[in-house]
Design a binder for these strands. Structure first.
Lengths: 131, 131
DNA sequence: GTAATTGCAAATCCTTTGCAACCAC
DNA sequence: GTGGTTGCAAAGGATTTGCAATTAC
């Protein structure tokens, strides 16, 4: 894998983020340093990183895919209203043995949990958006 | 919520499915009975069902959203290669208390786990697709 | 009768792809 | 030098929206 300016900036921007940015978020964030970088390069680069297990794509029900450079095992809190995604460590779950059914299903490479609900700021707001 | 033919067929088709179909899958499945139903009605109807907590949208990293009419708490096994999604009961995880961090985050309404990997048929195939 | 729902078409959002120029190795 | 990578533009897939006609209540 070649080291290009674009890849370096994209990786640095993602690693510095705590908010699980989308490809477009990252594109915006690196434009100051690399004004000519294109959005499709960001997409391609994130794909490449994912294949090399440098980043993770976070599954979402709505809107653009979100990315995460923290590769230690962890989970997510997802807000149904503002779509904020926050990391969560939950060792009690990590420690639970895989259920017997999973062997029959196939070969599990990783598990992750999403806690779904309303973040504290959205809890205060009156009209929760739908999932 | 009005009961229309379209809604009834969509709900029946989803409830009869074990494979977590996409909107387009469902559209195809009900066309035999309702030849004029449109895909956008399927989307709108699934949205409506979701707001009434009759169905769940399953978060995916790639491809169209998938739906699930089983509303009892359960989890999913997701194949990285063929994108098959299978239900999984895992009471050991359901029993784990929410971590202390989650209270600070906000109000958690539900939790779900994805076991990610290769299903048994894809495990036998040689070249796993990327996430 | 009335407001919600539908089908159609078009628009929008997000992501991917073909291709020629470019750059890291 | 060469093959992988980029930027551009255009295409593609998934989903949403405006609107007039229709339907459940």
């Amino acid at each position: 894998m070649k080291l290009t300016h674009q890849r370096l900036e994209i990786y640095k921007a993602l690693a510095a983020s705590l908010d699980h940015p989308s490809a477009e978020d990252l594109h915006r964030r690196i434009r100051g340093r690399l004004p000519t970088v294109s959005l499709d390069t960001v997409y391609r680069t994130l794909d490449t990183f994912e294949q090399h297990t440098l980043v993770n794509k976070v599954p979402v029900v709505k809107g653009p895919a979100r990315y995460d450079a923290g590769m230690h095992p962890h989970h997510h809190c997802v807000c149904a209203r503002c779509r904020k995604i926050e990391d969560l460590d939950w060792q009690a779950v990590d420690a639970v043995e895989l259920p017997s059914g999973s062997q029959e299903w196939g070969h599990v490479t990783n598990r992750f949990v999403q806690l779904y609900g309303l973040c504290s700021s959205c809890s205060k707001a009156e009209q929760p958006a739908t999932v």
